[in-house]
Structure formats: C-alpha cells, structure tokens
C-alpha cells in the first residue's frame, strides 16, 4: 500500500511523480489504484444500501404500530432516541460479541441509526394526514387497509422521503467507521492511508464518500418528485 516504486534489485533514482512526492491530489494514484478504489466504493454502496433497505423494512411497521397503538409511541421513540445518542464507534463495539469482525456488524449498526430518523419522519408524516381527509376516505367506503395504502401512506410520503434522505446520507458517512472491523468501504482506504501517511489515498477516498452521499441524496430527491407529483402542482 505504500506509494513507493517497486524494488527491482537495482539502485535507480525514484520517479519524481506525485506519488513519490506524496501530494494530496495525484492523477497517478487514480490511474494506478483504480481497482482498489472501485472495490472500496462498491463495498461502501453495498453496506449503505443494505442498511437503509433493512432499516426501512423495520421502520414502516414500527411507525405504523406507534401510530395505531398509543402506548407504543413513547417506548418506540424513546428507544430509537437512545440508540441515536450512542456514538458510532461504541455502537459497532457493542455489537462485536454478537457478530464478530463481520460486515453484518456494520450493517446492523447502521440499521439501528437509520431506524431513529426513519421512524420519526414516517410517524410525523402519518400524524400530519388531516382528519378530514381520513373521514372523507372512510365516507367513500374505504376499509382500514385501503385507507392506509391509498390515502395515509401516500400523504406521509414527503416526510418519509425527507427522513430517508437524511438516513441515507448519514449512513454513507458512518460506513467509514466500519474500518475499525475491516468493513468500512472507502473508510478502509482512509484508515490504511492514515497509517501510511498516504495523502492522495485519504483525500481521494474522502472526496468519493462525499460524492456518493450527494449522488444518493439527489437520486432520492428525484425519486420523491416522481412519486409525489401532486406536491409540484399549484406551488405550495
């Protein structure tokens, strides 16, 4: 991993390129380490996507339960807030006895974080559905299931999508901490770059993290626009 020319037994002058000079921005790094970068970015995307999808699958029923059952709302919100307060390094460490040094540890930690943001936002969206709308749907003969699927969930979608965007961007950033157990996507490159003082690697991996976060945010915003065409009509 050290940015040094390969030793071939002969004493030759080291090439005077940006790798040898350990510069922050280095084109030679990009071209020579393309595969490593690609693999790390792919792992980063996989960990993030898996965590957010599982988080969403857990958050929807939890939010619905908290909405239906009044007594459930307090404990669900309280527990998710406690989970969110625990620092990421401690969260991953607490899961170590359960999962060992594995990708599952990182995914589970990220799921627990995204739960807070998702449950809060989905619940806020469901609570913001006007009672008149609900009554109108009931008056039109909608049963509870159809009311939920065709009226309440679509109207809660903008708030839920806002939560999903924040959860996704946070997850992209938190994956890097997974480097402590060897599953940190681009965080692995930052971690090894730190130990070898490899500036180009640390900067490139960091910038890629931000690029992935922004790209994910823009994609989800686009999806939100497509899924909720009514919010665009008539301004506010």
């Amino acid at each position: 991993m050290t940015p040094r020319p390969r030793w071939n037994g002969r004493v030759t002058a080291p090439p005077d390129d940006c790798l040898a000079r350990n510069e922050w921005i280095c084109g030679a790094y990009l071209s020579s380490r393309r595969e490593i970068l690609w693999d790390a970015a792919l792992q980063h995307l996989q960990l993030t996507a898996l965590a957010v999808v599982i988080g969403l699958a857990l958050a929807v029923p939890l939010a619905l339960a908290a909405r239906r059952l009044r007594w459930a709302a307090g404990p669900v919100l309280g527990l998710t807030t406690i989970l969110y307060t625990i620092p990421s390094l401690a969260m991953f460490s607490l899961l170590l006895p359960v999962y060992g040094l594995s990708a599952a540890l990182v995914v589970t930690g990220l799921v627990l974080y995204s739960l807070t943001l998702l449950v809060r936002n989905i619940l806020a969206g469901l609570r913001a559905v006007p009672e008149e709308t609900r009554q109108a749907a009931r008056g039109m003969g909608y049963g509870p299931v159809r009311l939920l699927l065709a009226v309440e969930l679509p109207l809660a979608l903008p708030a839920a999508m806002a939560g999903l965007r924040i959860a996704t961007v946070s997850a992209v950033s938190l994956v890097t901490v997974g480097a402590i157990v060897g599953y940190g996507g681009l965080g692995n490159l930052i971690y090894s770059g730190m130990n070898t003082y490899f500036k180009a690697q640390v900067l490139t991996a960091s910038v890629l993290c931000v690029v992935i976060a922004v790209a994910a945010d823009v994609l989800l915003l686009g999806a939100q626009r497509l899924l909720t065409p009514w919010t665009r009509r008539g301004g506010q």
Partner: peptide
C-alpha cells in the same frame, strides 16, 4: 456537515 464523514475529516486534518 452530514454528508462529510467525521472520520475522513479527522484523518485529513491529522495529515
């Protein structure tokens, strides 16, 4: 602030 990984900033500043 949310999009920039904390760990990355810590390491960047260290270098």
């Amino acid at each position: 602030g949310r999009a920039v990984p904390t760990f990355a900033v810590l390491v960047l500043l260290l270098l």
